[in-house]
Simulated assay, not measured.
Amino acid sequence: MPLLSPLFDSVVTALRSAGCVFAEDEAELILSTARTPDDVAIMVDRRVAGLPLEHVLGWAGFHGLRVAVEPGVFVPRRRTEFLVDQAVALARDVCLVVDLCCGSGAVGAALAASLGGPELHAADIDPAAVRCARRNVEPFAGHVYEGDLFAALPDTLRGRVDVLAANVPYVPTDEVGLLPAEARDHEPLVALDGGSDGLDILRRVVAEAPEWLAPGGCLLVETSERQAPRAVETFTRSGLASRLAVSDELYANVVIGTKV
């Protein structure tokens, strides 16, 4: 849809009145996505009501891809692109990638696109996320499974995984209520709540990861700056050669463990 100035101005005004800090940018995205003026009105109303912009648009930009995002599904964060970059920098002759706690499947899709189309598998416990992820990994011939962490994966993958990306929930339970309303009210709790200290799911993933990794395979998990030292210790105790990668620009912390 052409960005007609009167319509653009009215959308910006509505978004700004609702408290959208980047009203001009959001208006441009809405107008470029909508097919009709009625679509524009519906999308603006949903955004003003507090729905995340990505849910309004039906997609999110992630690592150069346009990733489908449905209501009720975790929205991929820009900082998680740093996890993808770290995996790509480490990867050599990657044959098999697993995206655990995959949400929309954005990480798996980005890895597949960046690594030249390795065999791709993804899993999530949330049925809505699984449905959404299948849309995003289908172009890469990926497979998505519903279930609890490794229990969802085919046993034939055990000991063969070159890159295991696990964007686990890591918000401490008592801090979920402090999240922005867009996340707190519109994203699934199972994708946010990481237990009392935020590391419950991370511990479960790290405990089983060595059984699934190929020799030299890598596990990459995003965490917070505050949690990073304990996360690194958890990796080390599991027998993985561990290190922390940090992006100050993206406020991203990724723990990387390699099966020696």
Rank of each mutant, 00 (worst) to 15 (best):
E81S: 04
C132K: 02
E81I: 06
V161N: 08
H143V: 09
G117S: 11
L120V: 11
A183W: 11
A129I: 07
P188Q: 07
A122K: 02
D93E: 15
T80I: 09
N136F: 02
Y145P: 04
C101R: 04
A165N: 10
G116C: 05
F140H: 13
C95Q: 14
A151Y: 00
D155N: 02
R131H: 08
H186V: 07
V84F: 04
G116I: 10
R184K: 15
E175H: 10
N136T: 09
G103I: 01
P188D: 12
D185E: 15
A151G: 12
G108Y: 03
H121N: 02
V98T: 08
V84N: 01
R135I: 15
A87E: 07
P180I: 13
A128L: 14
Y145G: 01
V161D: 09
F150N: 03
V88R: 03
P118G: 01
D174G: 05
V163L: 14
L178P: 00
Y170N: 10
E187K: 05
N136E: 08
R158N: 01
E138H: 03
A110N: 00
A133W: 08
V84I: 12
A151D: 15
C132W: 05
G195H: 09
L120M: 07
L100F: 06
A183D: 10
S114F: 00
S104N: 08
G147W: 02
V161S: 06
D93M: 01
G177V: 12
D126Y: 03
E175V: 11
G194E: 13
R135E: 14
C132S: 09
G194H: 07
R184A: 14
V130L: 04
A122G: 03
Y170T: 13
L96Y: 02
A87N: 08
G159P: 12
G147H: 04
V97Y: 04
V107T: 11
G117V: 14
P154S: 08
D93Q: 14
G108Q: 07
L178Y: 07
V168G: 11
A181V: 15
V168D: 10
L164C: 07
Y170Q: 05
P154I: 14
L96Q: 06
V161L: 05
L83V: 09
R158W: 02
L111P: 12
G194K: 07
H143R: 14
A106I: 12
L164T: 10
G147R: 01
R131G: 08
A129P: 04
V94C: 10
D174F: 06
D124E: 06
A183E: 15
L189P: 05
A109G: 01
L179S: 08
L115S: 01
P154W: 10
H143P: 01
F150Y: 15
V176C: 15
P118E: 06
H121S: 04
L164A: 04
R79P: 00
G195F: 06
H186T: 11
C101T: 11
V130K: 03
P172T: 13
D85I: 00
A123I: 00
A133G: 06
V176W: 11
V98Y: 00
L149D: 12
D174S: 14
L189A: 09
L90V: 03
V130P: 06
R184P: 10
G159L: 11
N167K: 03
L83S: 04
D99N: 00
P188R: 00
A152H: 09
L189H: 10
V144K: 03
